[in-house]
């Protein structure tokens, strides 16, 4: 599962570039166990417009959501939560462009399993005052005044996200999350980088296709001049390894 490694490295490089250019990049350490904010209350998950303190990723403002995975442990710092741009308490009253990227590491993350998709769709369940919707066009969130008053911040949001993912997919060994609120312009390169992992749904389709031997993203008749050639080569190797596994036919029908 190395075919997203180059994307993960590009994200890392991009964050460094943003930090170097003066953007505020905050990081919460992996072993921080105590984060402020309400946790684990009953929630109807709806935040009405009138109660919305911060709106993130409204579709006509700008949004990006990605889930990337790798089997390489060195690429993922477990438990790390990073934020580029203002935190929730600094965005009150605003509707801003938003990006959330999850990076998962594990040897056998079931990317073609429906549980992966299911897990992705309700990540902030149980976090009162937070409503989110993930789709192929990105992620849209509303954060309530009440929860910000109680101290909700991206550290808490990120911690909840990572805990939810780990609890639903045991195969995850390491996980980190990146948030970006520094503006629509900063979002654009991330949207480009995460094109291959454009939402969990799209990623799953691609993976399924690759394991079946066809490429959903390739439109070129010839590889010459293709900018994705190194990623594609990695994908091909991954599929070849799959094909070298014992034939499923002997194991019977189905998956």
């Amino acid at each position: 599962m190395e075919y997203l490694d180059s994307c993960i490295r590009e994200i890392e490089a991009y964050i460094w570039a943003l930090a170097s250019s003066g953007r505020q990049v905050r990081e919460w350490k992996p072993n921080a166990r105590s984060v402020p904010g309400p946790m684990n209350h009953e929630s109807n998950q709806l935040v009405l417009a009138r109660d919305t303190a911060v709106e993130l990723g409204r579709s006509n403002v700008g949004s990006c959501f990605g889930v990337l995975w790798t089997s390489s442990s060195e690429l993922v710092e477990d438990g790390r939560i990073r934020l580029v741009g203002p935190d929730l308490g600094e965005l009150i009253g605003q509707s801003v462009a938003f990006c959330q990227v999850l990076i998962l590491q594990g040897q056998d993350i079931p990317v073609t399993d429906n549980s992966f998709l299911i897990a992705s769709s309700s990540m902030t369940d149980g976090l009162p005052g937070v409503m989110s919707r993930i789709s192929r066009s990105g992620i849209w969130c509303r954060i309530s005044y009440a929860s910000i008053d109680l101290g909700l911040c991206f550290a808490a949001l990120g911690r909840k996200e990572l805990d939810n993912w780990r609890s639903r997919i045991p195969a995850i060994e390491r996980a980190e999350v990146l948030f970006l609120t520094s503006g629509a312009d900063d979002l654009v390169p991330l949207q480009g980088i995460s094109a291959l992992a454009e939402g969990v749904i799209r990623s799953q389709q691609i993976e399924k296709g690759r394991q079946r031997g066809y490429d959903l993203t390739c439109s070129l008749a010839s590889c010459a001049g293709c900018e994705h050639i190194s990623a594609c080569a990695a994908i091909t190797k991954s599929v070849e390894r799959e094909n070298m596994k014992p034939a499923k036919r002997e194991e019977g029908t189905g998956r």
């Binding site: 109807n44 998950q45 709806l46 009405l48 417009a49 409204r58 579709s59 006509n60 409503m131 919707r133 849209w140």
Partner: peptide, 18 residues
């Protein structure tokens, strides 16, 4: 229409209420 689709998404979100 971009704005209208965003509003449509807001209306839909309200139907999540039980």
């Amino acid at each position: 229409t971009n704005e209208q689709y965003a509003l449509w998404g807001e209306f839909d979100a309200l139907k999540r209420n039980r």
